[in-house]
Simulated scan of single mutants.
Amino acid sequence: MEHLKITATPADEGKRLDSFLASQADSLSRSRLKALILEGAVSVNGAPETDPRKPAVGGATYTITLPDPVPATPEAEDIPLDILFEDAHLIVLNKPSGMAVHPAPGSWDGTLVNALLHHCEGELSGIGGVERPGIVHRIDKLTTGVLVVAKTEPAHLGLSELFQAHDIERKYLAVTRGAPRPLSGTVDEPIARSTGDRKKMAVVRNPESGVGRHAITHYRAIETFGLRDKGTRLPAAALVQCQLETGRTHQIRVHMSHIGAPLIGDPVYGRHKGISSYGHGDAHIEGTKAARAFPRQALHAALLGFVHPITKETLRFEAPLPEDMSDLIAALRKLPKED
């Protein structure tokens, strides 16, 4: 059990207690301090203080009692991890398809959290008072690629601030049904829960309604494949790089579908299985069959860059395309581009 003492100056007089303590305790967030105050873990001049809204008193000494981290609810599991970087504060890894980030209905075990609890045993300092990894962003269960996770509360707080400020470099690679038009551009459309299906997200048709969260995706078609039809000569598919300015749930999947280039294999936003392709012969058959059989959304978190919240070092990590997407692209490259 750790005790942290903070003395208020006359300039701190009148500040809300949880905000004042958060400004002095770099390793603790305001929400964490509010919880500690409500739990009776904060005292002033030896007397317990349980009201986080109470004004700070100039000259008073506040003592924060930090309990030892309690074991996390999910069980630790010995699951191999593809680790790109690790130090005492955070861990960066390449997540495979099929691994959920958090335990949830239908995925109570085998998740990234289960794997990290085993890998980081004895190294987690207690995030929110619980011995657990600090998840600051997620990628879908079937999406692959780079993910960063905090091991300490200061790192968790610092990474959270970076993501909230959109001060993170994130690039994804997607294989789309058809190609976006134009081949490069920006989708600046708010996203909200779909009114027709609460399990889906959707672009808000009436932004003035105040519903929906600001969402921006910059995209660029790196390569196109085949022909959709003989008349228009539009591509049958494309490899698209998407750079996120914001990070909303299913953002790339929703935005690409919105502009008419849904991800191949997307079971929610793809609308159709496979691709429409003009052509003949074995190469045409191989390419269209590969697209039709692709078992997940063709999306990969290829790059993640940020400033280390503790060491202030600039970090940048890339994860190569997984084998299934590489095989899909190889098959699509065989699609004929001429009549």
Rank of each mutant, 00 (worst) to 15 (best):
Y278C: 02
I168K: 09
K334R: 15
G158W: 10
P262V: 09
H255N: 10
N45H: 07
G145H: 02
P295V: 07
I285A: 00
F163N: 00
T311F: 09
P69A: 14
A41Y: 02
E131W: 03
R205H: 11
G14I: 04
H137A: 04
L36Q: 07
L112G: 08
D109F: 08
V146A: 11
G287D: 01
G178H: 04
Y62M: 13
S209R: 09
L159M: 14
R316I: 04
P180L: 06
Q164L: 06
T249P: 03
P180G: 05
A174C: 13
G98A: 09
T61K: 05
T195W: 08
K199S: 08
H308N: 08
G110V: 08
R253V: 07
K273I: 05
D339I: 03
V136M: 06
R138E: 10
K289M: 00
M99D: 04
H280K: 14
L116G: 01
D18N: 12
G274M: 02
A238K: 02
G178A: 09
R292P: 00
S184N: 14
K171C: 04
I83T: 13
H156C: 07
C242W: 06
Y62R: 12
S125R: 11
E169Q: 13
T111W: 09
V70G: 03
D282T: 13
P67K: 15
S257N: 13
P74F: 12
L17W: 07
H3S: 15
R53S: 15
A41T: 01
S29W: 09
P48S: 15
N94T: 04
V149R: 03
L239Y: 04
R205K: 12
L227W: 05
P55W: 10
R53G: 12
P336Q: 08
M201T: 06
Y172L: 07
R170F: 06
V44L: 13
H280P: 01
P105N: 03
G14S: 14
T9A: 13
S43W: 01
T152N: 05
G145F: 00
H284M: 00
